[in-house]
Computed example of a mutant assay.
Amino acid sequence: MKPRKIPMRKDIVTGEMVPKKELVRIVRTPEGNVILDPSNRANGRGAYISLSVDVAETAKKKRIFDKVFETKLEEQFYDELIAYVDHQAARKELFGDAK
């Protein structure tokens, strides 16, 4: 049996290529809103970040998504991102690869 291809995406904070399952997608919708996209299906321009609290905090400190999406985001967005990443990392640790 032929091994399945693992989709890879680039983490915009670290610049590393990582399996898509280990990332969270952030989307700027056609209306201009920036949202978390846990389903990976929302319409709009997407960017990926690792499920690591350190990486999320670096994104907040450097305001990475402000630059990528060419918009001004509130601190609340970054705080929500850090909380989401922390929650998903804890889930992964408890339940393994199941999402």
Rank of each mutant, 00 (worst) to 15 (best):
A42P: 00
I35V: 15
E70F: 05
R45E: 13
K21W: 09
G15H: 06
K67G: 06
E74P: 06
T58K: 15
K20V: 07
D97E: 15
F77H: 05
L51C: 08
K60A: 09
E75Q: 13
D11P: 01
M17L: 13
P3R: 11
T71C: 15
I6Q: 11
E80L: 09
A90W: 11
A59C: 05
P7G: 02
A90Q: 14
V85S: 07
Q76A: 15
E93Y: 10
R91L: 15
M17Q: 13
P3Y: 04
E80K: 14
E70K: 15
S39G: 08
E16D: 14
G44F: 02
E93K: 15
R9G: 04
I26T: 06
P7E: 11
L36T: 04
L36S: 06
P38G: 07
E80G: 09
P3S: 10
D86K: 15
S50C: 11
D37A: 03
T29H: 09
I82A: 02
K5N: 12
M17P: 01
K61C: 03
M17T: 08
A47P: 03
P3K: 13
K21P: 02
I49F: 03
F95T: 10
R91D: 12
L81A: 05
G15M: 07
V34R: 01
V24Y: 03
Y48D: 02
E57P: 03
G32H: 01
F77L: 10
F65L: 05
L81D: 04
L23W: 01
A98K: 12
E70C: 07
K99V: 09
D11T: 03
D86L: 13
V27W: 02
T14G: 03
K99S: 13
G46A: 04
Q88F: 07
I12S: 01
F77P: 02
F69M: 07
F69G: 00
I26V: 15
A98L: 13
E70V: 11
F69C: 01
T71A: 04
L94G: 08
D37C: 10
G15V: 03
N33G: 08
S39E: 13
E31I: 06
D54R: 12
L36V: 07
Q76G: 08
I82R: 03
A42C: 09
R45N: 14
T29V: 06
L23H: 01
D79R: 12
L81H: 02
E70D: 15
G32L: 06
K10T: 14
V34G: 01
